[in-house]
């Protein structure tokens, strides 16, 4: 696999938008000029059941079509999954984990049993409630992921998301603003143990 390729795994529960997050992320990153893949792990659709989705991002065309087993980044939409799902599986010592939680990175790293330097936290649910008006943690987590990955253009991502939402919610401009500010806030608020 090319050294330049980034692999992401999203953990959520059915209905929480893990799949949508991966799709939105892919589209937004494509808008910044990179090659992308977004795909869900499929099983019967069940509300509340643990689900995963995946992204690949690369400067070059992506031909590999196998599953993602050693993700560089893991995003956890629902902190209750930490207890029931092996969310750190395949994550190397350079891997980073972003968790939607009100706890600190140190507390989460204790729970996960991995080094605190690998853990990033953001209260995406809180941000979503304050900006979008509902607990949709997936949109703010896009911003957090862009920040933690580091070499992606947040303005490009915001621009693309704005365009997409403008089509979908043309009669509800407040929804567009809420979503965009949720991404911006999570981008600014995501933090590690330092």
């Amino acid at each position: 696999m090319s050294a330049k390729m980034i692999e992401v795994r999203w953990h959520g529960r059915g209905g929480q938008g893990a799949k949508t997050a991966a799709l939105l992320f892919a589209e937004a990153v494509l808008a910044t000029g990179k090659y992308i893949q977004a795909f869900p792990e499929y099983g019967p659709e069940r509300m509340g059941a643990p689900v995963q989705s995946f992204n690949r991002v690369s400067e070059d065309p992506i031909t590999v079509h196998s599953g993602v087993t050693n993700p560089d980044f893991v995003v956890i939409l629902d902190p209750t999954l930490i207890e029931s799902v092996a969310v750190t599986e395949g994550v190397g010592k350079d891997g980073k984990i972003i968790v939607n939680t009100s706890f600190s990175a140190q507390e989460i790293s204790n729970q996960l049993g991995i080094d605190a330097s690998q853990v990033y936290v953001v209260n995406a649910s809180q941000i979503a409630k304050e900006t979008i008006g509902k607990d949709y943690p997936n949109t703010p987590l896009l911003g957090a992921l862009v920040k933690v990955i580091g070499n992606l253009d947040i303005n490009g991502v915001l621009e693309d998301t704005k365009g997409k939402l403008a089509v979908k919610f043309r009669h509800k401009p407040e929804v567009i603003e809420g979503n965009l500010s949720s991404i911006k806030r999570a981008y600014d608020e995501v933090k590690s143990h330092g």
Binding site: A22, L30, Y35, I36, Q37, A38, F39, Y42, P61, H65
Partner: peptide
């Protein structure tokens, strides 16, 4: 196309 692997994979 290969089921899910391509049918449900978003690509460029």
């Amino acid at each position: 196309t290969d089921g899910f692997i391509i049918s449900h994979c978003m690509e460029v």
